[in-house]
Design a protein around this nucleic acid. Sequence first.
DNA 1: ATGGTGGCGCGGCCA
Length: 254
Amino acid sequence: MKLASWNVNSIRQRLAHVRDWLVAEQPDVLALQEIKCVTADFPAAEFEALGYHCAVEGQKAYNGVALLSRLPPAAITSGLDGFEDEQKRVLAATYDGVRVFDLYVPNGQSVGSDKYAYKLRWLGALRETLRGALDQHAKIAVVGDFNIAPEDRDVHDPDAWRDQVLCSDAERERLQALFALGFVDVFRRFEQAPGAFSWWDYRAAAFRRNHGLRIDLVLASPALAAQCTASGIDRAPRSLGQPSDHAPVWAEFA
DNA sequence: ATGGTGGCGCGGCCA
């Protein structure tokens, strides 16, 4: 099973890129974030024509997540347990016994802001949701835009980013709390070249200079991580015209 | 350089 995740920054603007990538890479599941449209406006028919099922949690203008899959989704849920939220950031479904969570973690804006406090609360609720899910499912994948660079090697200039949002200790501790549940950042299970990032700011020629962060992750529960055979980041779509600011990330499971 | 670019939707917010 090949699982992938891509923050597309508007599915309506990125439809051609996503369609081309699906045809080329044939993932079994592609989790999308920042679709930036209501569910009724999601171009489901375009993906169904390629043989993909769609589960969509849309929102006007901001956020929004969707799951595209070869198999039909089972047991679709949205949101975090016990966390009321207007913002559509979480969608989960089960495929062939694998529970897949698609996340668009809050950005947090800046350390100390109201949005940062919301991000930390949200990550606390995520931890509780995943702890509960582990009681129900052995094989869980948690994929998406985590808006946290796990370590300094995931940051092009760690000193410049020190204590900034996406890199602060409190955010990294919340991510470590997921690892403490047994989840594994499968990308790091494999040999990777340095400077492997998944997001580059649109400004200041950041992609050309590889001024990026690795903030898009595939986490796997212990039983699923044991089946992981490969993981990577596909930089190619980021170099196309009118790209998303994120690249797709993927992992394969036996 | 207190900037820069991009999306939504049409002024300002968000990333």
